[in-house]
Amino acid sequence: MLLIRCPYCEEERPELEFRNAGEAHIARSVNIAGETDDDFEKFFFIRSNPKGIIYERWRHMHGCARFFNAVRDTVTDKFVMTYKAGEPKPSKLPGVAK
Protein backbone atom coordinates (compact mmCIF):
# COMPACT_ATOMS: atom_id res chain seq x y z
CA MET A 1 0.00 0.00 0.00
CA LEU A 2 1.33 3.38 -0.99
CA LEU A 3 1.74 6.31 1.32
CA ILE A 4 0.49 9.55 -0.16
CA ARG A 5 1.20 12.98 1.20
CA CYS A 6 -1.91 15.15 1.28
CA PRO A 7 -0.78 18.73 0.65
CA TYR A 8 -3.71 20.05 2.68
CA CYS A 9 -3.35 17.76 5.70
CA GLU A 10 0.43 18.05 5.31
CA GLU A 11 1.11 14.45 6.19
CA GLU A 12 1.50 11.04 4.60
CA ARG A 13 -1.57 8.88 4.80
CA PRO A 14 -2.26 5.35 3.48
CA GLU A 15 -3.50 4.89 -0.04
CA LEU A 16 -6.83 3.56 1.29
CA GLU A 17 -7.85 7.12 2.16
CA PHE A 18 -7.40 8.36 -1.39
CA ARG A 19 -9.09 8.06 -4.73
CA ASN A 20 -7.41 8.67 -8.05
CA ALA A 21 -9.20 11.24 -10.19
CA GLY A 22 -7.44 11.07 -13.55
CA GLU A 23 -4.86 13.20 -15.26
CA ALA A 24 -4.17 16.70 -13.95
CA HIS A 25 -3.74 20.07 -15.67
CA ILE A 26 -6.52 19.56 -18.17
CA ALA A 27 -8.44 22.78 -17.91
CA ARG A 28 -12.11 23.00 -18.80
CA SER A 29 -12.57 25.87 -21.23
CA VAL A 30 -14.54 28.85 -19.96
CA ASN A 31 -16.21 28.84 -23.36
CA ILE A 32 -16.70 25.12 -23.56
CA ALA A 33 -20.00 25.42 -25.46
CA GLY A 34 -18.16 27.14 -28.29
CA GLU A 35 -15.32 24.63 -28.58
CA THR A 36 -14.63 22.84 -31.84
CA ASP A 37 -15.01 19.08 -32.00
CA ASP A 38 -11.24 18.72 -32.15
CA ASP A 39 -10.67 20.86 -29.07
CA PHE A 40 -13.35 19.01 -27.16
CA GLU A 41 -11.83 15.70 -28.18
CA LYS A 42 -8.45 16.84 -26.82
CA PHE A 43 -10.03 18.08 -23.61
CA PHE A 44 -12.28 15.14 -22.92
CA PHE A 45 -10.84 12.04 -24.53
CA ILE A 46 -7.13 12.37 -25.10
CA ARG A 47 -4.85 11.46 -22.21
CA SER A 48 -1.08 11.17 -22.14
CA ASN A 49 -0.75 7.70 -20.52
CA PRO A 50 3.03 8.09 -20.14
CA LYS A 51 5.57 5.50 -19.14
CA GLY A 52 7.30 7.44 -16.41
CA ILE A 53 6.24 10.73 -14.87
CA ILE A 54 2.52 11.45 -14.79
CA TYR A 55 0.71 14.45 -13.36
CA GLU A 56 -2.56 13.35 -11.90
CA ARG A 57 -5.37 14.33 -9.61
CA TRP A 58 -6.12 12.58 -6.35
CA ARG A 59 -8.78 13.17 -3.77
CA HIS A 60 -8.24 12.68 -0.05
CA MET A 61 -11.63 11.00 -0.02
CA HIS A 62 -11.62 9.63 3.52
CA GLY A 63 -9.68 12.49 5.01
CA CYS A 64 -10.04 16.18 4.26
CA ALA A 65 -11.95 15.38 1.04
CA ARG A 66 -9.85 17.84 -0.97
CA PHE A 67 -8.73 17.29 -4.52
CA PHE A 68 -5.02 17.84 -5.12
CA ASN A 69 -2.37 17.12 -7.72
CA ALA A 70 0.39 14.54 -7.58
CA VAL A 71 3.42 13.63 -9.63
CA ARG A 72 3.90 9.89 -9.85
CA ASP A 73 6.25 7.62 -11.74
CA THR A 74 4.13 5.02 -13.49
CA VAL A 75 7.07 2.63 -13.70
CA THR A 76 8.04 2.54 -10.03
CA ASP A 77 4.65 3.67 -8.71
CA LYS A 78 6.55 6.19 -6.59
CA PHE A 79 5.02 9.53 -5.72
CA VAL A 80 7.53 12.23 -6.55
CA MET A 81 5.55 15.06 -4.98
CA THR A 82 2.05 16.36 -4.33
CA TYR A 83 0.72 19.91 -4.48
CA LYS A 84 -2.53 21.76 -4.09
CA ALA A 85 -5.19 22.03 -6.76
CA GLY A 86 -4.80 25.22 -8.78
CA GLU A 87 -1.04 25.41 -8.26
CA PRO A 88 1.02 25.40 -11.46
CA LYS A 89 2.62 22.29 -12.84
CA PRO A 90 6.03 22.11 -11.10
CA SER A 91 8.90 22.82 -13.46
CA LYS A 92 11.48 21.04 -11.30
CA LEU A 93 10.86 17.70 -9.68
CA PRO A 94 12.75 16.62 -6.57
CA GLY A 95 14.99 13.62 -7.13
CA VAL A 96 14.13 13.11 -10.80
CA ALA A 97 16.87 13.23 -13.40
CA LYS A 98 16.48 14.90 -16.83
Binding site: R28, R57, R59, M61, A65, F67, A85, G86
Partner: peptide, 13 residues
Protein backbone atom coordinates in the same frame (compact mmCIF):
# COMPACT_ATOMS: atom_id res chain seq x y z
CA UNK B 1 -21.41 14.31 -4.22
CA UNK B 2 -17.94 13.51 -5.59
CA UNK B 3 -18.88 14.98 -8.98
CA UNK B 4 -20.15 18.18 -7.34
CA UNK B 5 -17.10 18.49 -5.10
CA UNK B 6 -14.80 17.90 -8.04
CA UNK B 7 -16.27 20.79 -10.03
CA UNK B 8 -16.58 23.04 -7.01
CA UNK B 9 -12.98 22.48 -5.88
CA UNK B 10 -11.23 22.39 -9.22
CA UNK B 11 -13.23 24.01 -12.03
CA UNK B 12 -15.46 26.50 -10.23
CA UNK B 13 -13.50 27.33 -7.07
Amino acid sequence: MNHMEDYLQTEFP
